[in-house]
């Protein structure tokens, strides 16, 4: 098989995926979801700006706005970011993974592809790459749109910070600011967030394909995501509970009869050690949300193991 042949298969798979109604609707919704938080902020800031303009002499802004603007800003941005990237997008990725692989078993269209003069690994790999392409497009669509809106609302802003200027937060990842200023300190967090999101989505895509190949069912594939979340949350919460300060304080007392007090030091060392290895599947919702090199090693392992499993099973399976 030549690289050109493989590229044509990848193109065909990508076209198939992007012509699915689920993929189109998902693309639109993922952008809207990403803009929902910043959109809320726009409303908040418009209220703030309007209120600021109409302040009477000696009146405090706090008298007009019953909430703390910056806090609300951060909160809605976080909610929007996490919901889109770690709830909505994974669900879509699993659904599309299921549709692009499992539904081909149900519809028996996979047989027609297998009958062609191509090795099976190339079929699976092209589906995986098509899924990644969809993720990149979904992320870029949001980034470009939010950056565009960022340009729109910050263009020609004065040097003094205003409510309007704060609307550059529409970019979500401070994309425009980072690009314009080109300061590494500014661009780095944005890039890390983009990188983390994409790496996590690659993990989701690989898991989705593996579950789809093994179960051959779209419903089971989506259910697989629920399992991933449950396991991840259980692990995270488990580490969290054991690692809580309260547990550190009272644990040794409550378990004094069974666990020697001096053993707790090494127990907590182990908890801290293992917690660092959690993949960032539920970043921001688990107690140990800080990204660590170890968590990326785990994520890479899960990604590769999922792909290897999918390839191994697909190579050997009977196609209906």
């Amino acid at each position: 098989m030549t690289p050109v042949h493989f590229f044509h298969i990848y193109q065909a798979e990508t076209e198939r995926l992007f012509r699915r109604m689920t993929a189109i609707v998902g693309l639109v919704l993922s952008v809207l979801f990403g803009l929902a938080g910043p959109g809320l902020l726009l409303g908040i800031n418009l209220i703030a700006w309007y209120s600021y303009q109409s302040l009477a002499e000696g009146q405090s802004p706090d008298d007009l706005i019953p909430f703390e603007i910056v806090g609300s800003w951060d909160f809605s941005l976080s909610i929007s970011y996490y919901l889109r990237n770690f709830m909505f997008l994974p669900i879509l990725i699993f659904l599309l993974g299921g549709l692009s692989m499992a539904s081909e078993f149900v519809g028996r269209t996979v047989r027609e592809d297998v009958l062609r003069p191509v090795p099976r690994w190339s079929l699976l790999l092209s589906k995986w790459l098509a899924l990644l392409t969809w993720i990149v497009v979904a992320s870029l669509a949001l980034a470009c749109l939010s950056a565009g809106l960022g340009v729109l609302v910050t263009w020609g802003a004065s040097a003094a910070p205003t409510a309007w200027e704060e609307l550059e937060g529409l970019s979500g990842w401070d994309w425009f600011t980072a690009w314009m200023s080109a300061y590494w300190a500014t661009i780095k967090p944005s890039l890390i967030q983009v990188g983390v999101t994409f790496a996590t989505d690659v993990g989701f895509a690989s898991l989705a394909l593996a579950v789809a190949v093994v179960t051959r069912s779209v419903a089971a594939t989506v259910a697989g995501l629920v399992m991933v979340f449950m396991v991840q949350l259980a692990v995270a919460v488990g580490f969290g509970v054991l690692g809580l300060d309260m547990a550190r304080q009272f644990g040794p007392q409550l378990t004094a009869q069974w666990v020697p007090a001096d053993a707790w030091g090494s127990i907590y060392e182990w908890i801290d050690f293992f917690a660092r290895w959690q993949p960032p599947f539920v970043l921001g919702t688990c107690p140990f949300s800080d990204l660590t090199p170890e968590s990326f090693i785990t994520l890479s392992f899960i990604t590769l193991a999922s792909l290897a499993t999918a390839l191994f099973v697909f190579e050997r399976m009977d196609v209906p």
Partner: peptide, 12 residues
Amino acid sequence: LQMACAYAGLPK
């Protein structure tokens, strides 16, 4: 059929 051409390895 065009997609099948891609899988069959025919020149585009």
